[in-house]
């Protein structure tokens, strides 16, 4: 429970930082911290806990966004699930596969937003300038992913009720360093 609350609070901080930064720079010039955090949860925490946290964080993100309530929650749950499935096939604890995976998932995540907005609200479609923006944010997300995953793993380890969580967090860190 302590870990769940702690990780949720940390996700809330990520959300507030994202919202604050968005005043000073266009959204696509910023990494999507909430998305990265959800991916980090899927890799470092995993299981039902990661899914519940991703959904809760998604609902909170919806409150500070023009999205429909549930839109971020749905896409973050899907991203979390996709990361868990991918982690069974790919060695996501390593930096290179993780960066490539996060880049691909970012594209799908943003296109998911576009598709849902178009489907539910009839928002305007995509154009080429959007592709440029997407490329910028994909690059930023991919670059920052190792740092966020390592951070989530470390915090999750600190907050773990027993040594199981700590071992899991440590394992992710060690593997990412190739040890």
């Amino acid at each position: 429970m302590r870990r769940l609350v702690g990780l949720l609070a940390l996700g809330g901080v990520a959300l507030l930082v994202q919202g604050t930064l968005a005043i000073f720079a266009p959204g696509f010039w910023l990494p999507d911290l909430v998305f990265l955090y959800a991916v980090g949860l899927a890799i470092a925490v995993g299981g039902a806990e990661a899914l519940v946290l991703a959904a809760a964080l998604g609902y909170a993100a919806d409150l500070f966004s023009g999205a429909l309530l549930g839109q971020h929650a749905l896409l973050l749950v899907l991203a979390c699930g996709a990361t868990r499935i991918a982690s069974l096939q790919l060695h996501l604890a390593r930096s290179v596969p993780r960066v490539a995976f996060v880049a691909g998932l970012t594209v799908l995540y943003v296109l998911g937003h576009a598709a849902l907005a178009r489907l539910f609200v009839g928002a305007a479609g995509l154009d080429w300038s959007f592709a440029r923006q997407l490329a910028i944010q994909t690059g930023l997300n991919a670059l920052l992913a190792p740092l966020v995953v390592a951070g989530v793993a470390r915090v999750s380890g600190w907050l773990a009720p027993d040594d199981e969580g700590f071992r899991r967090g440590l394992a992710v860190e060690l593997r990412s360093r190739g040890l």
Partner: peptide
């Protein structure tokens, strides 16, 4: 006062 921007790059809103 605008205290926050949109948490997603896809949308444009202000808190």
């Amino acid at each position: 006062e605008v205290v926050g921007g949109d948490t997603s790059a896809w949308f444009r809103s202000a808190l």
